[in-house]
């Protein structure tokens, strides 16, 4: 039961984080379309780091 609540919290946190990353990256691309490639790369790296963190937490809670 508690680990399900924990998993929910992790997903909420990861969702907020991913939303921030994606939203800001989109804003950045809209402002500077010529930097799309660089922004996308950085976005994917940060998203991957976040995802690693979230999965690590889910994995430990299992």
């Amino acid at each position: 039961m508690y680990n399900l609540i924990g998993a929910g919290l992790i997903v909420i946190g990861a969702g907020i984080g991913l939303g921030q990353i994606g939203g800001k990256a989109m804003e950045g691309i809209a402002r500077q379309p010529e930097a799309t490639g660089k922004i996308q790369t950085a976005m994917i790296i940060i998203a991957a780091l976040l995802e690693g963190l979230a999965f690590g937490a889910l994995f430990l809670g299992k």
């Binding site: 991957a48 690693g52 999965f55 690590g56 889910l58």
Partner: peptide, 14 residues
């Protein structure tokens, strides 16, 4: 290394 291995494992398993 831990983040590398857990990410791939967890994503594919999930």
């Amino acid at each position: 290394p831990f983040s590398l291995l857990v990410r791939l494992f967890a994503n594919i398993s999930a």
